[in-house]
Design a binder for these strands. Structure first.
Length: 224
DNA sequence: GTCCAGGGCCTAC
DNA sequence: GTAGGCCATGGA
């Protein structure tokens, strides 16, 4: 890994000057953030919004309500988010675990990030990205979230290869290079998402991209 | 009609 | 330990 070419501070400020301070996860409560993190697995956020709207309207948008409701009912409510049987099962599993073992999310979140991460990863349907999204945005502890957007932008801007873009490698690199700070981690990831959604798609729309001049991506070359 | 979206699990080698 | 198949809806 060539440290000399990776200036994350500059990248962050470039994105932030375009989009402003974001520091977000689309969700009003910790429960909603966790539910959204599972529902958005390999799915566009637009579809997740439909599912969350259904849950809210039926008053099931909480860990305790999900633990208590029927699986078939949950499946119907989250159907627009795709993979709905898997996700219903994952939500039920997660919710039952929290209720049975802790009672509330807040109690579970008293663990340090390392212990919490280990526990989340042991649950069915919670992998690296979902675990880290929960830890950063709901538990508010410092782990950097790596997602498809992060990989795409880091790959294009710094020319990283697949091995360097693997989850643990990219996470380690970013965490070593920026200040360990929950607010910075949240906002940095939010900037990645905003940039990718607006400019850095699979079919490149690089012309007006705020980081265009730094980007190594060749617009004439298809991504693999 | 085809491609894609803020993953993760299981299986085979 | 890793490549490939599978899960599924809705929008472009």
């Amino acid at each position: 890994m060539k440290a000399k070419t990776v200036k994350l501070g500059r990248l962050y400020l470039t994105m932030k000057s375009r989009f402003g301070f974001l520091n977000w996860w689309p969700g009003e409560t910790k429960d909603e953030i966790v539910i959204g993190a599972i529902l958005t697995q390999n799915t566009s956020w637009k579809n997740v919004e439909k599912a969350i709207k259904n849950l809210k309207e039926e008053n099931v948008l909480s860990i305790s309500k999900i633990a208590a409701c029927k699986t078939a009912y949950l499946e119907e409510l989250i159907r627009p988010s795709g993979f709905y049987k898997q996700k219903a099962s994952r939500l039920k599993g997660f919710a039952s675990h929290v209720i049975k073992r802790y009672g509330t999310l807040d109690k579970m979140f008293r663990k340090n990030e390392k212990e919490l991460r280990k526990e989340l990863l042991s649950l069915n349907g919670i992998g690296n990205e979902t675990a880290d999204s929960i830890i950063l945005y709901a538990a508010e502890k410092p782990v950097f979230v790596i997602d498809a957007y992060t990989k795409r932008i880091m790959g294009r801007v710094y020319g990283f290869k697949e091995k360097e873009l693997e989850y643990q490698n990219l996470q380690k690199l970013i965490q070593e290079k920026i200040q360990t700070d929950v607010t910075l981690y949240k906002d940095f990831h939010a900037q990645f998402v905003e940039l990718a959604k607006n400019y850095c798609k699979k079919e490149p729309l690089c012309e007006n991209c705020p980081i265009n001049k730094n980007c190594k991506y060749d617009v004439n070359e298809k991504l693999s």
